[in-house]
């Protein structure tokens, strides 16, 4: 399995055009933004203040901000497009390059899919983590130059709390990435095209993001008020709910009469794992039965 992961890693990481835009674009793009703003700020205090105003003034908060690309509804409807395009390219790219015919006889099909999912999740995690570091560094320099505080001061307790908070966000981010990678894999297997799989996975992500409103609408149209209870089983509800538990130690508030609060944390984490594992198993099962005829 290690060799398979290294093979997947090599062919993904060496695809500079793909990873350059859709993976490293996050840390490098943010680095470019701060470089330009800091240079401009050397000549204009307003520009410098404008730049630091994009942050919260708290590095433990700013460091988590980039994970909003994957986790922060409603922005996720659009911001997820970039990682989704990357995932669609990684999975459907094998059909377009015609490489499955060389890969499939060499290893078991489910492992080929799993190795792709692992590499996609690890690469995106590395990119977001690097972007977190760049944000903190950029904000830190900007605030230093403008004489503003960038708290809290480093201490064992602060660092310990931050590591736990970052770990919780990382856990949810990775779960969301695996879930999206699984649906991207399934979409790529079914459509065999990068654009087709991007459209399918974007549709899934958008429907999931809007699932609360869709269920409310359906409840009204079908006169079935209980149907909104299904929301607690959606990935979006459980991502939001788990974030709420981690941030405030309480469930999210829901605008439903019978379900006014989200489920407990264990339920949400279990649902996210079930979604990720279920979609992965479905993608592997469909791929196992698929004819590779091109």
């Amino acid at each position: 399995m290690i060799n398979l992961l290294r093979a997947e890693w090599k062919k993904t990481i060496w695809n500079y055009k793909l990873t350059g835009f859709l993976v490293w674009g996050f840390p490098v793009g943010i680095l470019g933004f701060y470089a330009v703003m800091l240079l401009t700020g050397l000549f204009s205090r307003d520009a410098m203040e404008g730049m630091v105003a994009t942050g919260s003034g708290d590095w433990t908060v700013d460091a988590l901000g980039i994970w909003g690309v994957i986790l922060a509804f409603p922005f996720t409807i659009l911001t997820r497009l970039i990682p989704l395009a990357f995932m669609a390219s990684v999975f459907a790219g094998e059909y377009q390059s015609g490489m499955w015919k060389y890969l499939i006889p060499r290893n078991r099909r489910p492992l080929l899919i799993l190795s792709k999912m692992a590499v996609v999740a690890v690469l995106m995690t590395l990119a977001f983590t690097a972007a977190s570091a760049v944000v903190v560094a950029g904000q830190g320099i900007g605030r230093k130059l403008t004489g503003l505080a960038f708290g809290p001061a480093l201490s064992g307790e602060v660092v310990g709390d931050f590591v736990i908070r970052y770990g919780q966000t990382l856990l949810l981010g990775v779960l969301a990435l695996i879930l999206l990678a699984a649906i991207a894999a399934l979409a790529a297997i079914l459509t065999r095209s990068v654009l087709g799989s991007l459209l399918v996975v974007f549709l899934f992500s958008t429907l999931d993001s809007l699932s609360m409103y869709i269920l409310m609408l359906l409840a009204k149209i079908l006169s079935l008020p209980g149907i909104v209870g299904l929301y607690r089983y959606t990935p979006q509800c459980n991502l939001d709910n788990a974030q709420s538990w981690f941030a405030t130690d309480a469930a999210i508030r829901l605008p439903f009469e019978n379900f006014s609060t989200g489920p407990d944390l264990g339920f949400s984490l279990a649902m996210l794992v079930i979604w990720a594992a279920g979609l992965t198993a479905l993608a592997a099962a469909v791929f196992e039965r698929q004819d590779i005829s091109s």
Partner: peptide, 30 residues
């Protein structure tokens, strides 16, 4: 079993050597 099915297809951005490395590692036989 080794196979060449319906014409060659490779990752164009990788070198010949790296393409073979990827395939060998995929088969866990590098």
């Amino acid at each position: 079993v080794g196979g060449l099915v319906e014409g060659p297809a490779f990752y164009g951005y990788l070198s010949g050597r790296n393409n073979l490395e990827v395939l060998a590692r995929t088969a866990d036989d590098y």
